[in-house]
């Protein structure tokens, strides 16, 4: 009977469990990092009380969130209300299945890896909509409306900035894209496509609702935006998925532009993780450095700068390839 179970299914299930563990672990590290870096930028020590240098703070946060009362707002559609955090979290786990962490460390090597990531990260907007609408709260609804217009607008330059890499490599396979680049930094696509990398990074910030594009959850205007009403694990799942999408964006950026697992001397997952964490640290750094953009500024950046520049970059790349 055991022989009858296809090996791909076993690999996929084990991989899903492993990615969930990876997502959780990353969230723990990132919560600590974010608070610590924020502290240093504010010239204060950051979390300091729980454990040496506050290293156990994320666990305390997690325990607090698990212990909180689960509360559904009055008049809300409770089924959809609790479905939203799950819809937000589930696609994030799927995206990690196709990411090549190392030369031999990839769960599914598929020809459409990049499309899979783009498709499943798009589902997150839907969760945001459901959360905002079912919360029966004006702040949540405004946050959801902002989230939708933001992510629909920034999807266009994001795709346009990814296209030159696809034209250069001729594949959607993330493993092949990584191996198309050399081991040394000057052989990476960030050197030949610097503009695409910058556009991609800005769009990734906007798609993951990170500051300075955190309008859907702007604390000073909308309390907490679309997840204002969520308590306990509902909020924790949104939080987890936000960090998971950050990690996915950093992973895709590292693979497309920074050579993925390729690095000087010996290729491997250590280079990949180092690049991912450098990108994540830059994201955290940006969050505590730039003020939040206004909504008209947000859309102006997208339509007046990023899209024309991305199209121009694409055309120049095509011209160079054709020559």
């Amino acid at each position: 009977m055991i022989e009858a179970i296809p090996i791909q299914l076993v690999i996929m299930l084990v991989g899903l469990a492993a990615t969930m563990a990876f997502v959780g672990l990353n969230a723990i590290v990132l919560v600590y990092l974010e608070r610590k870096v924020a502290g240093f930028i504010h010239r204060r020590p950051g979390p300091y009380e729980v454990g040496p240098h506050g290293i156990l703070q994320p666990f305390a946060d997690g325990l607090k969130l698990v212990g909180k009362q689960i509360f559904t707002p009055k008049g809300a559609d409770s089924f959809l209300y609790w479905l939203a955090p799950m819809i937000s979290m589930a696609p994030a786990v799927v995206c990690f299945l196709v990411i090549p962490f190392g030369p031999h460390l990839q769960i599914i090597n598929t020809n459409v890896g990049l499309v899979l990531i783009l498709a499943f990260t798009g589902v997150n907007v839907l969760a945001l909509c459901i959360a905002g609408w079912t919360s029966q709260n004006k702040y949540s609804l405004l946050g959801a409306a902002r989230g939708v217009s933001q992510s629909v607008a920034y999807e266009i330059p994001l795709l346009l900035s990814v296209l030159p890499i696809i034209f250069l490599t001729g594949t959607f396979n993330l493993f092949d894209i990584a191996t198309n680049q050399g081991s040394w930094p000057w052989q990476w696509f960030v050197v030949t496509q610097p503009l695409a990398f910058i556009i991609f990074f800005i769009c990734a910030l906007a798609e993951t609702n990170r500051a300075p594009f955190d309008l859907p959850e702007a604390e000073s205007e909308l309390t907490a935006g679309f997840h204002t009403e969520y308590s306990g694990m509902g909020f924790a799942l949104f939080f987890l998925s936000e960090y998971a999408y950050m990690v996915i964006a950093a992973c895709v950026g590292a693979i497309l532009f920074l050579g993925g697992f390729k690095g000087p001397i010996v290729d491997g997952w250590w280079w990949f993780l180092a690049k991912v964490y450098i990108l994540l640290l830059i994201m955290i750094w940006i969050r505590w450095t730039f003020p939040r953009v206004r909504f008209d500024q947000l859309l102006n950046i997208c339509w007046k700068w990023l899209i024309p520049l991305a199209i121009l970059n694409l055309l120049i790349t095509l011209l160079v390839i054709a020559l």
């Binding site: 020809n111 499309v115 999807e155």
Partner: peptide, 25 residues
């Protein structure tokens, strides 16, 4: 046909349904 399937998710779930949702809101 995973490419078509993913395009289905990308376009219909990620964009069209979200815009319908926006209209409902």
């Amino acid at each position: 046909a995973p490419f078509i399937g993913l395009m289905q998710i990308l376009i219909y779930v990620g964009a069209v349904s979200v815009l319908i949702f926006f209209a409902i809101m």
